[in-house]
Design a protein around this nucleic acid. Structure first.
Lengths: 265, 265
DNA sequence: ACCTGAACACCGTTCAAGT
DNA sequence: ACCTGAACACCGTTCAAGT
């Protein structure tokens, strides 16, 4: 879904101003010619991290790479597919993560712990990109929920099956786990984006009517200091721990549906 | 964050085609002149529900309302604020919901149950709009997590405090609850969007190379039928039940930090 | 083989004008 | 008081050309 996100775009295209200060502040260091799909995706991620998602246009990405926008179309079918590629690239960073690559050798709970922390690391490293992961349509439409990267889904399911989950329990675990990750990280990332930038509005903001009148929300105002605290990391650990506990219960129960089960031949 | 979402926009602006088939298929029934902020927001929601978020442009919304785009600027400062208004409107539907408005009279767990189901109802009613709720920056930047609609935050916190939560526990509950809702509903809504429309790609899709080769994902393929099942409703109930249980534990413990506590004067 | 110029059909937004 | 026409600075995308 289109969604411009003004906070990342302080001097967005105003359709007006005479100052043509270009957003692409820093062209990437390396040599100039090797235009290449991997290089384009990398530059796109850098650009989004630096300027926000809505600042990324084919034309600006082109000039960031020292090239006319039209050149990109030789390597990428269009803007949509560019964004798909960005999502895939970011998720693929997981597989360069040695922590994650340990696999299930130390047990599935350990694996899901490392996987969760790995995903959290990339979410925090690319807060402007992460929402894309949540909202883009899936690679295989019939996977539900349709988080991108079949590679991820595949290794998750394999790990669970290898660890004694039934197929049903493995799929249920996949859903609970990805919904937890998505909700928590999306919220955490969107917090991070809220900058009380002292630059943008130094003081005594001339804001029109304070937008919504805070006098209508006394509790929110009173609890301001508590609400402002960022306990994301601790909350993440706690919720993850709880989830893993629940999954273990499901696993136990799915393996021995009732006592006195006929033992498998 | 910008995010075009091609699935909702099969015949998106191609910059090419001669067929100028306008997207605004159905102008809203009522009389023509009463252009008005409320009417504009309502039309925007209808339009997004029908055509997808990325199809909404000022110009198309204008013509959907039988007016030139420029007329909208008399009632809405710009596209960004239009989207903010859409989010507020959709969330405000909650307060027209009699179920939700019962308040905390039957206990906080009952209240959170009804609130969760109310939010789920609007998420499912406006699947194309809901992602906006998750990604837009907040009204009060220091509220964490920054879900929109202070009205919602205010009444949530009041309910918890009235029910014996400490301030710390109420804030923690707010975070756990909204992160759960966000994660679950975003995933559920994004499932709904995946249509195996028999129209778009009737059969034997001439898709290029099947994009990602499914032979690399044998487990995903083998569990296809399980993965395709939509158990969202049941999963929602179960996860919600579990969350409420956890919150009750936190509440108990926050009220009586240790046994043999000095009783309040 | 790889990139560019020019062009087309769109955007958001402004402002002076119409009624 | 409310809407429109015309204009400006952008978009994504194409295609014939350049080198």
């Amino acid at each position: 879904m289109t969604e411009p996100d003004p906070r990342a775009d302080p001097d967005s295209p105003e359709g007006r101003g005479g100052t043509a200060a270009a957003i692409p502040a820093a062209p990437p260091g390396a040599g100039r010619s090797g235009l290449d799909r991997r290089r384009i995706l990398g530059a796109a991620i850098e650009f989004i991290d630096a300027n926000g998602l809505n600042a990324l246009t084919m034309r600006r990405l082109g000039s960031y790479l020292g090239v006319e926008a039209m050149a990109l179309y030789r390597y990428v079918p269009g803007r949509e597919q560019l964004l798909d590629g960005v999502v895939e690239s970011v998720i693929d960073e997981l597989y360069g993560d040695p922590d994650v690559h340990l696999g299930v050798s130390h047990g599935w709970q350990d694996y899901l712990q490392r996987l969760a922390h790995g995903v959290r690391r990339i979410a925090l490293a690319h807060p402007e990109v992460f929402p894309l992961v949540a909202t883009r349509p899936p690679a295989a439409p019939w996977v539900r929920p349709p988080l991108r990267s079949l590679r991820w889904v595949e290794s998750f399911l394999e790990a669970m099956l290898d660890s004694g989950f039934t197929e049903e329990a493995a799929v249920a675990a996949y859903r609970a786990y990805s919904s937890f990750l998505l909700g928590h990280l999306l919220l955490e990332v969107s917090q991070k984006g809220v900058k009380i930038s002292p630059e943008d509005q130094p003081e005594g903001v001339p804001d029109a009517a304070e937008s919504t009148d805070l006098r209508n929300y006394p509790t929110v105002v009173r609890l301001e200091s508590l609400l402002s605290l960022d306990e994301s990391a601790a909350e993440f650990e706690e919720a993850l721990e709880n989830l893993l506990g629940r999954l273990e219960a499901v696993r136990q129960e799915s393996r021995s549906p009732r006592r006195g089960d006929p033992r498998p031949s």
